[in-house]
């Protein structure tokens, strides 16, 4: 079970958090200008990184803030956590 450092609250057990998937998925500014494929990429396609991965976590049973975690998907080492 991970210990995650919430940028607002400090180190907490993983059970206080919920996972929000890959970070840095930017919502397109003009969705209607995109092809179905481009929109599908934004909507469905996610990286399956082996190594350090930027992801979103929410301190859902705490301060309820979303933040970014850089986590190694091989050994679960958390390299950094920071605010949006």
């Amino acid at each position: 079970m991970l210990i995650i450092k919430c940028p607002w609250c400090g180190d907490r057990d993983e059970t206080e958090f919920s996972y929000g998937g890959e970070a840095d998925i930017k919502r397109p500014v003009a969705p209607e200008a995109l092809s179905d494929e481009e929109w599908g990429d934004y909507l469905f396609m996610r990286k399956n990184t082996k190594g350090v991965f930027k992801e979103q976590w929410n301190h859902s049973a705490g301060c309820r803030r979303w933040f970014i975690v850089e986590r190694d998907t091989v050994n679960y080492d958390i390299k950094a956590t920071y605010k949006f």
Partner: peptide, 13 residues
Amino acid sequence: MSWLEQWHQTEWP
């Protein structure tokens, strides 16, 4: 509630 917060905090802060 948390979905709205997610949009606000992560996409449109």
